[in-house]
Amino acid sequence: MIPTSFEYKNAGSVADAIGMLGDDGQILGGGQSLIPALKLRLNSPGVLVDISKVDAIKGISDNEKSITVGGGATHASIASNADLDSAAPMLVQAAREIGDIQVRNRGTIGGSIAHADPAADWPAVLLASDANVMIQNKDGKRTVDIDQFFKGFYETALEEGEVITGISIPKSGFNKNSAYAKFKQPASRFAIVGCAAAVDIDGGVVKEARVAMTGVSECAYRVTAVEKALVGKALTAENIEAAVGDVTEGRDVMSDHYASEKYRTHLASVYAKRALKKLL
């Protein structure tokens, strides 16, 4: 469990970090995915640029129309944030169920979505929340709509030399009424399936719904069929049952020694319903 040798650089700011990366550098956030990969020698960057001490991207700030979660915010800091708990409770629920205490204290939301593990919790939650990902590179800053961010198996819209500085969560009606439900792989406690559901209810009927799955396929995705089926109806157990069909349609469902394709497909529907029913 000894990594190959690398140069370690401690960045004082995001701009600093981008400058330090060079040709074969890699950003180190909380290290909860990267360090094990280094130790197993599955990854061997020449330079490791540590951004875990860049305070500017660690905070969670409540703006008028959104909440900005710093890319360096730890899962633990999200789990205990009262503003998020009120504006988008699914973020807090998801954060509380990530890994274990050590993982939550070290791991960061930016690191997690940059890594884009297909079984990570954040991708589903951020898809459901209609978040924007704030990115910095050597030329400046850009923002990516979350719907355009996850591209595939460990693949995102993030390019070489870029750092995630924050995630902006709209203070919307659907985020205020949101929930996350997850069936855990017992060893890693990643999601075998996870579903994030955010539903805006107006005048007794669903005005807008966003439902996203993780753990099921190569990357997290929204289940627009369920979203559409819910709109215009009252949010009731019966309507949820009717709206949630096969939530894996059109997806290549993963199969591993914890969950076969058939079982995972079944669980995906169960957990889509459970996430939505948490909102009843």
Partner: peptide, 20 residues
């Protein structure tokens, strides 16, 4: 769990579930 080729497919704490 060994696969048919004799590889231990859950040789880490991410896959081999120790009770907590």
């Amino acid at each position: 769990q060994y696969d048919d080729t004799g590889q231990l497919i859950n040789g880490s704490y991410m896959d081999y579930c120790m009770p907590r």
